[in-house]
Design a protein around this nucleic acid. Structure first.
Lengths: 376, 376
DNA sequence: CCGCTTGCTCGAAGCGCTTCGACTGTCGCC
DNA sequence: GGCGACAGTCGAAGCGCTTCGAGCAAGCGG
């Protein structure tokens, strides 16, 4: 019984228990109208701006709104206007996407949505198609932003003929009839290779996501790999692509394996945010200094790249920009405006300390290769 | 004009543009009632279970519900029942909290809320008290879960007399009249020290959050430090507490500084998830093998501890459990049930590979202290 | 001076749901 | 046989808002 201001836990009959709303301070539009001496509809029009209201009336109404601390009841508004002013954000539960990127993205979505006077309902992917159907059918949200779409995502067909507009982050195999946004991962792979090619590297490798990510047909992983491989080929550069798990032992093993397969290897493209720090830790262990003996380019958020040592040359994952775009597109769809089906954000490569000109071939050849066991 | 199934972008007047809802398939309770041959209220009672309905009627209604794919309109329901079946989750935007923990937590909140048939509205802390007031007053949510509460959080007084129940993650300076949940960080610090004491360590240090986190009076940081310091004192152990920034250079510098100040140092408690990997990378550089020469205990999620090399002895941050608890408590408050004001989750320490018996003192003393330059 | 537009405001009809009170049988019991 | 109790169902009154049509005064051209 130590509560002071409000009885959080007094189940006394006949008086409202602390848990529920106090009816008292629920100001309604009728209260505002009465206070301002106008009709309810006038208040509504002042607030929505959908009809002309004289300046004097508007001021009076707005003063009452402020004075009474009026906030329109969301349910009533949704019911009457058929617009909830809420969008759904569907995030993947499972890993594979790096968490920080996800948070950055979610944050951008919320912030942008608020700028459009919308709120965000958070869903996890594990409710699956049924969850989407539920929130759509219940008119709880006006539109849906969906993250981490797979190539053959079971939710995609549903979205196509759902009664609410949606925007996908990532491209499914068949994006027709949908609105999709993403970083242009193909060009991201390309840009990395071109940067390295310009530095004279002739043998490079891509250290990618865990194998499972490729296996479940995740578009961005495949597209990066394609951009990497095709660009390397066009430049006549030897290129290996290698999935990689996200623990230190695996990283060391994969990197050592790459060095064994390609002794000339002078550059690494790392598209795995969780592994990137471990790659930097592993390389010195394997006798390669960064960037003198081996260059590293990462595809990751700037934050990760800057925090690493040495700071990483990187193509940033513009989570924030993607989030903003996604919401903006959704808002336009809500207004019934036409929007492009696909929006690919151009990658931007930032040069930092982890890339340098390729070492001269002879130096590479003659380098000792220290391992756990002596290499003779 | 490549769209096939639906005209997403045809602003033709007189027909609904693709963005908005197709009125057609919005099944209402009246449709269900008609289809089942009962009154609207009967359908409502079947669905809510608030009045007895004969088995035969119930079956008929439920069949119609399924057949028509009925989902109650959330706005209408909220309006009539004064319950939105939505809770707000307020997450901090800014750093200081480690992102993965945050995501884990958010995920747990959503999942648990769904089990209680509630959805989750995602807010960021940057809307501040005004945002809370808005969602509360608009009846958009029934209750609020607030993360990352600071000792003197400006939102706390507001929450106290808001008309909606709330649960805080973390304890403000004065938690009276509120409901708070958190890991018991004091005991977490304590448990770490006791583990090390049991292994015979006599000189230990706490590597904590960045200084700014302490400065803004973040409860968990202070409480961990207190638990650490007081327990060490009780055991007669020399203990240093040191804030730490989250980049490699700073980590190396802080650790080197600690070793210089306390050459006998044989164990480190790291309460900084972003730095923990860097600490492990830095120690060998500074000539200390883990755990032979120096033990490391971390306070971090199991995932981080397991992925590290060597695997870290750690007290896990039970983000999931905290999220579940928070939602459960909120639901009980929504039912008007009494709930405890404070819930402290006991820490659990998992022993892994990063802690070992303290090295004998003489060995410690005689150890060479290598630096960046080759050590012979 | 009439009738028209124009600008501003009001009243009322819902939106789809919950919930209260009332109604209809059935049953058990004096 | 009449009465209350009770289970099961229905109708209607809102919940707080938006929006439509209408009203009314003022302004204006013919």
């Amino acid at each position: 019984m130590s509560e002071s201001s409000r009885p959080t836990s007094r189940p006394t009959p006949g008086q409202s228990t602390g848990g529920s709303a106090k009816r008292a301070d629920m100001v309604t539009i009728a209260d505002v109208a009465r206070h301002a001496g106008v009709a309810v509809s006038t208040v509504s029009y002042v607030l929505s701006g959908k009809r002309a209201i004289s300046a004097s009336t508007r001021e009076r109404v707005l003063a009452s709104v402020r004075g009474l601390g009026y906030h329109p009841n969301a349910g009533a508004r949704a019911l009457a206007s058929k617009r909830a002013n809420v969008i759904a954000l569907v995030l993947p539960l499972r890993s594979g996407m790096h968490l920080p990127v996800l948070m950055q993205f979610a944050t951008a979505v919320v912030t942008t949505a608020r700028q459009f006077d919308h709120d965000v309902l958070l869903m996890t992917a594990d409710e699956g198609p049924a969850g989407l159907r539920r929130i759509a059918a219940s008119a709880m949200v006006d539109g849906i932003v969906l993250m981490d779409v797979e190539m053959h995502d079971p939710r995609v067909p549903l979205l196509r003929d759902l009664e609410r507009p949606s925007v996908l982050i990532g491209f499914p195999a068949d994006p027709s009839g949908l609105t999709c946004v993403d970083l242009d991962f193909y060009r991201a792979g390309q840009v990395c290779v071109e940067h390295l090619a310009g530095l004279g590297h002739r043998t490079i490798a891509l250290l990618g996501a865990p194998a499972v990510v490729y296996d479940r047909d995740t578009g961005f992983a495949h597209r990066t790999r394609a951009g990497f491989a095709e660009t390397a080929q066009r430049h006549g550069i030897a290129a290996i692509a290698q999935p990689c798990e996200e623990n230190f032992e695996a990283v060391v093993q994969e990197v050592a394996g790459l060095l064994a397969r390609a002794p000339d290897l002078s550059a690494l493209v790392v598209h795995n945010e969780a592994a990137v720090g471990q790659v930097l830790a592993a390389l010195p262990t394997l006798g390669r200094r960064v960037p003198e003996e081996i260059s590293v380019v990462a595809i990751c958020p700037d934050e990760v790249a800057e925090r690493a040592s040495p700071a990483l040359t990187s193509v940033l994952i513009p989570a924030e920009e993607v989030g903003r775009q996604a919401v903006s597109l959704l808002m336009r769809k809500l207004e019934g405006e036409p929007v492009p089906e696909g929006t690919l954000l151009p990658p931007r490569l930032t040069v930092r300390a982890s890339t340098a000109a390729a070492p001269p071939p002879d130096q590479v050849r003659s380098r000792r290769v220290p391992t756990g066991s002596p290499a003779g």
